[in-house]
C-alpha cells in the first residue's frame, strides 16, 4: 500500500513537471493550429501527386452551431461547385434557422436554403433563443438510402462517403423516401437521385469540400476520423458532439456541437 502510495506521489510529481512542459509546448501550438486550420486541413490529406488510396481514409464533418452565422455562403458555394439546380427545392446543403419562443414550438425556416440570408424584419421579441443549423447528407455508416436502393446505384465508398452512381440510378426515389434527413432530391433534368458527396472530387485531391472552404467562421470542420491530430478529432475531443436522429441508428458521419434538443 505504502509502496503504491510512494509510486503514486512520484508519478504525480513527474506528471506535474511534464504537464507544465506540455502546457508550455501545446498551448501556443494549439493556438497556432487553430489559426491555421485551413492549412492543416489541406496538408493532411496528402499531396495531390500521390495516387489516392480510398481505403486509407475515413472522412467526417463536424459542425459547430455556436459558430454558424447563417450567411448561407456554404449553400451557395455548394450549388456552384456541384451544378445543383438553382430552384429553391433542390439542395445538397442548406441552413435552417431555429427561433425558440419562451413558450411553445420552435419556429424553423430556411428561405431558399439560406442562400439569400434570413429576413430579420419579423424577428419577434418573444424569441427566447435563436441559432442556425447547417444541414447536409449525414453520410451514415448505416445508411438507409444504401440499404433500400434496389440496384446498387447508391453505395458507401471505401473511404466512408455515400455516393450516387448517376449512370446506374433508375430514379425510383426509394432512397429519397428512406432518408430521415431530407438530404436527397431527384435531379430535375438528369432524373436520378442526387445529394452531397462531401465534394468527393475535391477531398480525393486534398482540398476541403466547397462549403468548408468558404465558411467564414470555421463553423464546419472536415477531416479524417481516427487520426489523433486531425481537426475533426480535436473538434470531437473539445466539444460535446451529437448526431441527428441518433435513435434511428443510422450512425452519421456528420457531427454537431451545440445542437439544441429542438434540432431534428
Amino acid at each position: 500500500m505504502n509502496e503504491q502510495h510512494g509510486q503514486k506521489c512520484d508519478f504525480v510529481g513527474m506528471d506535474r513537471r511534464d504537464f507544465l512542459g506540455a502546457v508550455a509546448r501545446t498551448v501556443p501550438t494549439w493556438l497556432m493550429v487553430t489559426a491555421i486550420v485551413p492549412e492543416l486541413l489541406a496538408a493532411e490529406a496528402g499531396s495531390p501527386d500521390e495516387k489516392y488510396r480510398p481505403e486509407e481514409h475515413r472522412y467526417a464533418m463536424a459542425i459547430n452551431i455556436h459558430k454558424c452565422i447563417g450567411c448561407g455562403r456554404c449553400a451557395d458555394a455548394c450549388k456552384t461547385e456541384n451544378n445543383v439546380p438553382r430552384e429553391p427545392v433542390f439542395f445538397r446543403t442548406w441552413i435552417e434557422r431555429y427561433r425558440v419562443p419562451f413558450e411553445g414550438e420552435a419556429v424553423v425556416d430556411s428561405p431558399n436554403g439560406g442562400i439569400d440570408g434570413f429576413p430579420t424584419e419579423d424577428h419577434d421579441s418573444g424569441t427566447f433563443k435563436a441559432f442556425f443549423v447547417p444541414k447536409l447528407c449525414n453520410h451514415c455508416s448505416n445508411a438507409p438510402c444504401v440499404q433500400v436502393c434496389p440496384v446498387g446505384a447508391t453505395f458507401t465508398s471505401q473511404d466512408g462517403v455515400v455516393l450516387v452512381d448517376k449512370d446506374y440510378c433508375v430514379g425510383c426515389r426509394y432512397c429519397i423516401q428512406a432518408c430521415p434527413y431530407g438530404a436527397r432530391y431527384l435531379h430535375p433534368t438528369e432524373k436520378v437521385a442526387d445529394k452531397c458527396t462531401f465534394c468527393y472530387h475535391r477531398i480525393t485531391k486534398g482540398q476541403p469540400p466547397a462549403c468548408v472552404e468558404v465558411c467564414p467562421t470555421q463553423a464546419r470542420v472536415f477531416g479524417e476520423m481516427g487520426e489523433q491530430a486531425s481537426p475533426i478529432s480535436r473538434f470531437m475531443r473539445f466539444n460535446d458532439v451529437t448526431v441527428l436522429k441518433s435513435w434511428l441508428n443510422t450512425d452519421p458521419r456528420v457531427y454537431y456541437a451545440g445542437a439544441d434538443e429542438e434540432v431534428r
Partner: peptide, 28 residues
Amino acid sequence: PLLAHLGHPERALEMFLTPHTASAMAMF
C-alpha cells in the same frame, strides 16, 4: 405504374441483373 414513374425506365431491368438483396424493392 412503377415503370412509368421511374426516372429512367430504360434501366428497369437492372433490378433483375443486379438486385440489391438488402432492398425490399429489388425483391419486387
